[in-house]
Design a protein around this nucleic acid. Sequence first.
DNA 1: ATTTATAAAGAACAGTTGTTCAATAAAGGA
DNA 2: TCCTTTATTGAACAACTGTTCTTTATAAAT
Lengths: 182, 182
Amino acid sequence: MKKDLRVVKTTENLQSALLHLLETKPLEKISISELCKTAKVNRGTFYLHFQSIDDLFSHYFHEITEDLRFAYYEPYHLTNYAIENVEPHMVRIFHHVEKFSRFYKIVFNRKAPLMYYYDLFDIIRAYLLESIEEQLAVSDSEYLASYQANAIIGMIIEWVGRDFEQSVEQLNNMLIEFTKSR
Amino acid sequence: MKKDLRVVKTTENLQSALLHLLETKPLEKISISELCKTAKVNRGTFYLHFQSIDDLFSHYFHEITEDLRFAYYEPYHLTNYAIENVEPHMVRIFHHVEKFSRFYKIVFNRKAPLMYYYDLFDIIRAYLLESIEEQLAVSDSEYLASYQANAIIGMIIEWVGRDFEQSVEQLNNMLIEFTKSR
DNA sequence: ATTTATAAAGAACAGTTGTTCAATAAAGGA
DNA sequence: TCCTTTATTGAACAACTGTTCTTTATAAAT
């Protein structure tokens, strides 16, 4: 069951129109009308696929996070989930964020909805949950995963707020330091 | 220089109208028109003080977080900032969130803007920053504060997602456990 | 290649948004 | 108390939103 080519075409048009408009103005100032005009898509058609600009961006951002979900998945599995080997895994997270820094500035904007945040959170949390599980009670390890995942995002928030002035290596070294003794 | 009574009156009316409407529908479905109608405030007047429903809620939520900022401030200072005494301080955070659970469900909603999140984040981060500072480089301790503050919020996210099924004591015990060895 | 299914366009609707303006009302200062 | 200042109102505006409907176009299935 493959997708109707017409749907593929319109969603692609909408997506690239969004990227184009993002070069000139912030996400929250892009109206659906304007977007459809630049995408040459009828406004009613937009609502057939998305319910808001945020929803459209969310779909696009989900594609970005696939870079984290899949491209970085294999190398981690090679490390046998040992806690000592969390390091290279986390380097990849910071590297990924830097690679798409333009979009992470949008994701962590005060006016951005939490939906993007949760997309990132869920991925990191799932990674960490795989390397926990053993000794703790189930709900405790779920809380630990959320604790650790969000801690890392805390560093990313700080990083974005400082406009990426630190290097990926510095971020990684700090993370190693922080997880060591607290 | 005290505030104009008319301003106090209208903002109070808008705020209580918002609380009233929140009993019947989610935040994102409340329109400015509807709000102004129930508050008996002219729509143009709304824009004199706020720029959106989110902005109004943000102001209200800021009042809620004062419960965390001030009411819980003194007891913490009495403990001399010792790391061992972070415990009672953190109990207060979870207690505060439970006390205003109705609003924290709104704050952590997928469609809610990050502005509320940052309000909470900044408070917890400021608390933690006070108890760090000593041995680390300045930027490192800022990153550590963000790391730890957001870790705690990670637990809150998990807690809200589970509709507060764990007790404040359980949350606190887990936090003690997590900060001990990682 | 023709038929069938359905996506997209186009047009229309009431309601919302953000803004501006002159007129009015109400608060604060002397 | 009177005067001055300024917050609020009410009305109007174009633009945007969310939705529905019919018609047209285009992909998929046979």
